[in-house]
């Protein structure tokens, strides 16, 4: 029996979270297959074949899979599920859409957002916005699991897996893909960036959010993040939201600027290696998770920080 990983990719390259999921998959000490769903994905399959420890790469290539629907991907997984002991994916918006549907069709439970595999069928996962961790054990024969990528290191290349293909059925009549809007940015991707600069409601406007935080992000080669309040106010796009209901990040350095530190926000960043908080309220809860807190007006402190980084940088 093997572990099947549902890959996350952008049509050209694998996302780093897929390599992190491979590390999680090694917990079972079984052979590891990677499924690439999409259209014109030969390059992605090639890349996956090079990952250390992967024994087989499977392509599911069809025009309608360029923008895969959960209905189609779940159907595909169910067809082949009998060969696998575990179907695993990084915990992303894609897998959150597809895998619960797959699990229900197989009549098994799904274990979401796993931070450690503690046995062949037991897992550690956060509940209550990360305030509590629960150890759960499954009684099902097939394990359907998503893992929190930031809890695992990324596997590097050192493999030569075989590349196979699965036949793909016609698309579902239940749903149609109409279009998408991508937020384009030259900054590193939030989920896997080495550093993240996040802003809250206190930035006051979309213009100030950008004007104050972008130079700092630039200086640190950081991704931008935001609180839900900042996103709701329209200061930042939805996909920058960090937290219980946004993206969970664990960068080397996280700088929270004018962020109060509600548990729903800290749920998404408290595993960062080093946390800096800049807030004018000395009692703001964010200081409870910060390694370095600076009580200051962000509109003065952030430009000063950018200037200090520029002058003191030993490059």
């Amino acid at each position: 029996m093997s572990v099947l990983i549902l890959a996350e990719h952008d049509g050209h390259k694998l996302k780093k979270v897929t390599r992190q999921a491979v590390t999680a998959a090694r917990s079972w000490q079984a052979s590891i297959h990677i499924l690439i769903v999409g259209h014109h994905i030969a390059a992605v399959a090639q890349e996956a074949a090079g990952i250390a420890g992967v024994t087989e790469v499977i392509q599911a290539d069809a025009a309608h899979l360029a923008h895969p629907l959960a209905e189609d991907v779940a159907g595909l997984l169910v067809e082949h599920a009998g060969h696998y002991q575990v179907i695993l994916a990084p915990h992303t918006r894609f897998s959150k859409n597809v895998l619960p549907r797959t699990a229900a069709l197989l009549d098994v439970a799904m274990i979401a957002d796993v931070i450690a595999v503690t046995g062949p069928k037991s897992y550690l996962r956060p509940i209550y916005a990360g305030n509590i961790t629960a150890t759960v054990e499954s009684s099902d024969t097939i394990q359907i699991v998503t893992v929190r990528a930031s809890s695992y290191a990324a596997v590097t290349d050192d493999g030569t897996a075989n590349i196979a293909s699965w036949a793909v059925s016609a698309t579902t009549p239940l749903a149609r893909w109409l279009g998408e809007k991508r937020n384009v940015s030259d900054r590193p991707e939030l989920a896997t960036a080495r550093a993240v600069v996040s802003g809250g409601r206190s930035l006051g406007s979309a213009e100030q959010f950008e004007a104050v935080l972008a130079p700092l992000a630039e200086e640190l080669k950081a991704a931008l993040g935001a609180t839900r309040a900042a996103v709701d106010a329209g200061y930042a796009p939805n996909d920058l939201q960090v937290g219980q209901t946004g993206t969970v990040v664990a960068p080397e350095l996280y700088i929270a600027v004018g962020v109060s530190g509600a548990i729903q926000h800290t749920a998404g960043m408290k595993d960062s290696k080093v946390i800096v908080a800049i807030n004018q309220d000395p009692d703001a809860p964010i200081f409870q998770v910060a390694d370095y807190g600076l009580v200051a007006n962000l509109f003065e402190a952030v430009p000063a920080l950018v200037a200090a980084l520029r002058t003191s940088a030993p490059r």
Binding site: V108, A109, I111, S122, P126, I127, G130, N131, I132, T133, A134, T135, V136, E137, S138, S139, D140, L253, K270, V274, I275, V276, P282, F287, V289, A290, D291, Y292, G293, L294, V295, A296, A301, A304, L305, A308, L309, S312
Partner: peptide
């Protein structure tokens, strides 16, 4: 239920942080 909860725990606490007095000190610490 298909899943049995074996136990629950508090997540490991972060070690307490410090407040820095200035931007310069922050950069120095980092």
């Amino acid at each position: 239920p298909r899943l049995t909860q074996l136990k629950v725990a508090d997540p490991p606490p972060r070690k307490p942080g410090i407040k820095v007095g200035s931007v310069q000190e922050l950069v120095e610490k980092l």
